[in-house]
Design a protein around this nucleic acid. Structure first.
Length: 775
DNA sequence: CAGTGAGCGAGCTTCCGCTTGACTT
């Protein structure tokens, strides 16, 4: 048995460290937190100073019993969890869960996984920092109180099974408000003037582009300006050349990796993290959940060597980057290749691409600045006071640009910056044409998953380990959905001056197309409206930053953690109770207008089964009429006409095989009903335009599909069938379905085989609402 | 699975941050 037991958080880390420490040390991992607040109820004793009720998490029972055994046998237990608030708490929880004798416990920390760093740490152990643990307790208790008191309020006032929390609710708010700002954006336009000149470039005919720095508000002004230029001479008045520099971006953190993988490779945040985890577990990259831009000394030395051997010494420039993000805890290194001399790796396509991205970013961060030369050429027009400017940029020394260029979120790039032809002051230019183009102002872009992470990081909400899960939570709760904005086409004016003539044209362009963007749903909008109205303090973008400051004070021993929680909780809880009593059910009800037929009010709101329209007040003697919205409609955007149209369902549209056909709109979208059977109407069909012929088509299509579904039928028992389903063949008996055991050919099944399979308990149909082994 | 939307009531849902697998309907 080993004399020394070292406990870290991650098993992959444990494996590496064990190699450095030799046979007297056994290195194991805790797999993250081992204790958490009781799941059943609040888990916090409000009456007695907010004492947390911690217990070993169900999925960590085995880890804890295993570690307990090993700890008992060891002389010294080294707690080597991360050096931050959460890591300190994990160590403290280990002491409690493993019932460790504090005299044989040593707390150590290291920021990089190298032999020197680890032996250094072993030489300088300390004890557990209780202040830091208290700060974590405060964080944990606050999040529990907020989440577990706000969520039930939503269940009562809006809809069951909803959720709210310090992080997710602010993330939703960002998306809702971005959508608002896009909806309320007032487009304006102006005219941009560009002139083109004939020029010789390297002996060949070429063009020189120059822009007018200011724009004209109206078409008339633009036309007038072009008219004034018709007979002008153009002369180079000034050439101004300035050297400039560009520096590389710091190495990747979780957030910047997610952003670049999204922009450059089109990966979702979850996908990026899954791939990074695989690379980490194969020992190819360092830890992927980090907020640090720091590289170890060893990494710096490796990249120096690599850059020198690939590009030469003058491309090397070692840098130490400082973190800019709020609340960074920097327990790890930046994300980098473990071995920087490995430019490529074995793996699948996506793994290779992500690795390559990490490699390039790391290498570039330690390379020389790029040296540029920027030139502004001022061009005089003989007939007007305005001057044109031609811009050029030349790379003198490429430096880090050789390997990596960081991308940006907005793709506005129609500038003509590049190499300018040789020009001299006083030179007269050969005019080709001048164009005035109508340009429109643009609303903010919607968030992508990755740009939302960027914003969250700026606000200091969420942590590297929670960015991806938070984004999936707000989508799972249906507050937000990821989709494309189709955009629209619009006309713009273009006026051209060429050979002394002015011509006008109307052209059209596509605008507003956005792919894979986050849109708020009706539910998200309503829940946000409710929370902002009653809990503006928690939904405040600075709430986290403020409490973080207090957590820091707790960590420094300047503040008592449960006093801080008490100060927060008293007013918060009374707001909860007030809202509970005073506010009515919150449905986001909106008055759309008056129904011309009945003269009654028409409302749109969120009902029990989703968005709906209501004609008449609930308090009226006559009951109101209701109709659900179509899937593509929203509370936010529906018009009175569209709302009234929904009341034309269900309606008869003809008959077939001597039975009526009706069209209706149900919970699962529009449908055709015939002989008590239902046929769903595809998304691109307008239900109000479905005719008898189209309905018959749909009925026949479905019948044909059903016929093809049947693999085996049995005359002796028509209840039993072998069918082809979405997930492959299965046996259907009455209302129950059974899967077919592996290795059986469905076509060969006899009635007896089917019965036998159905009676096997291991094929029994699953209950619909089973909870999977919850963590 | 598809005629609901009021109200009753049982029993359920929920937070954030650390970590990795288990599973397919």
């Amino acid at each position: 048995m080993s004399k020394n037991l070292v406990i870290v958080e991650s098993p992959a880390k444990a494996k590496t460290i064990e190699r450095f420490l030799g046979k007297d040390f056994l290195v194991k991992s805790s797999f993250g937190h081992v204790m958490d607040l009781s799941k059943k109820d609040l888990g916090v004793d409000i009456e007695n100073g907010f004492i947390p009720e911690y217990e070993v998490s169900t999925d960590k029972k085995k880890v804890v019993t295993d570690l307990k055994k090993l700890a008992k046998a060891a002389e010294t237990v080294w707690l080597a969890t991360d050096e931050d608030r959460e890591g300190e708490a994990i160590s403290w929880h280990l002491v409690n869960a493993l019932k460790l004798d504090e005299s044989k416990v040593k707390r150590i920390v290291f920021h990089e996984i190298t032999k020197t760093a680890i032996t250094e740490a072993i030489d300088h152990p300390r004890s557990i920092d209780k202040n830091l643990v208290n700060a974590q307790t405060a964080r944990r208790v606050l999040d529990r109180l907020v989440g577990y008191e706000l969520s039930p309020l939503l269940w009562k006032k809006v809809k069951p099974a909803l959720s709210a929390g310090r992080v997710q609710s602010v993330a939703v708010r960002l998306i809702v408000e971005r959508e608002d700002s896009i909806k309320n954006f007032k487009v304006s336009s102006s005219y941009k003037i560009t002139a083109k000149f004939h020029i010789k470039k390297n002996g060949k005919d070429g063009l020189l582009w120059a822009d007018l720095p200011s724009r004209f508000k109206t078409k008339e002004e633009a036309i007038a300006f072009l008219g004034n230029c018709a007979a002008a001479k153009y002369t180079v008045a000034d050439i101004d050349t300035k050297p400039s520099k560009r520096s590389p971006a710091p190495p990747f953190t979780t957030s910047t990796l997610q952003q670049e993988a999204s922009r450059k490779l089109g990966f979702s945040v979850a996908n990026t993290m899954r791939l990074a985890q695989q690379l980490y577990e194969s020992g190819l990259i360092t830890y992927m959940r980090t907020d640090s831009v720091n590289l170890s000394k060893m990494a710096l030395a490796m990249s120096r060597d690599e850059i020198t051997s690939l590009y030469g010494k003058k491309y090397v420039k070692t840098r130490n980057f400082k973190t800019r993000s709020k609340g960074a805890q920097e327990a790890h290194e930046a994300i980098r290749p473990t071995y920087i001399n490995n430019q490529n790796i074995e793996g699948d396509r996506s793994q290779k691409k992500l690795y390559e991205l990490i490699w390039k970013r790391t290498i570039a961060s330690q390379m020389a600045d790029a040296e540029l030369e920027k030139t502004n050429v001022t061009i005089d027009v003989s007939t007007v006071p305005e001057k044109f400017i031609a811009k050029g940029e030349v790379i003198i020394f490429d430096g880090f640009l050789k390997v990596y260029i960081e991308s940006t979120d907005d793709e506005n790039g129609e500038d003509h910056e590049g190499v300018l032809p040789p020009l001299s002051v006083g030179q007269e230019l050969d005019f080709e044409s001048m164009t005035a183009t109508q340009k429109f102002t643009q609303a903010l872009l919607r968030f992508t998953e990755a740009s939302l992470v960027k914003k969250m990081e700026e606000l200091g909400i969420g942590r590297p380990s929670t960015y991806a899960p938070t984004i999936s939570t707000i989508q799972k709760r249906e507050y937000v959905e990821k989709k494309n904005s189709e955009g629209f086409t619009r006309d713009y004016n273009q006026i051209v001056l060429k050979s002394g003539n002015i011509t006008e044209a109307v052209k059209s362009e596509k605008a507003g197309f956005e792919k894979n963007k986050l849109f708020p749903t009706d539910l998200g909008i309503i829940v946000n409206q409710f929370l902002v109205q009653y809990f503006d303090n928690i939904l405040d973008y600075n709430f986290t930053a403020r409490v973080e400051k207090e957590f820091d004070e707790i960590a420094q021993g300047k503040k008592v953690w449960n006093e801080m929680i008490g100060e927060f909780y008293q007013p918060f809880h009374s707001r909860i109770e007030d809202t509970q009593e005073k506010s009515r059910k919150f449905s986001g009800e909106k008055l759309l207008g008056i129904d011309p037929k009945s003269g009654k009010n028409v409302f749109v709101k969120l009902g029990k089964y989703g968005p709906m329209v209501q004609i008449g007040d609930t308090s009226d003697e006559e009951k109101p009429r209701f109709a659900g919205l179509k899937k593509e409609q929203s509370i936010d955007g529906i018009s009175l006409e569209e709302a009234l149209e929904l009341f034309s369902f269900p309606r008869q549209i003809g008959s077939y095989e001597d039975e009526e056909i009706t069209v209706g709109i149900g919970r699962f979208g529009p449908f055709v009903r015939h002989k008590s059977a239902f046929y769903s109407i595809p998304k691109d069909d307008d239900p109000s335009a479905v005719t008898q012929d189209r309905a018959v088509e749909l009925i026949e299509e479905k019948r044909k599909a059903d016929r093809e579904k049947i693999i085996c039928e049995y005359k002796e028992n028509p209840e039993v069938k072998v069918l082809k389903g979405r997930y492959g063949p299965y046996i259907s008996i009455g209302k129950n379905n059974f899967k077919i055991p592996k290795g059986t050919v469905p076509e060969t099944l006899s009635l007896e085989d089917c019965i036998k399979i159905s009676e096997d308990p291991k094929n029994a149909p699953k209950k619909r609402f089973t909870k999977k082994g919850k963590k």
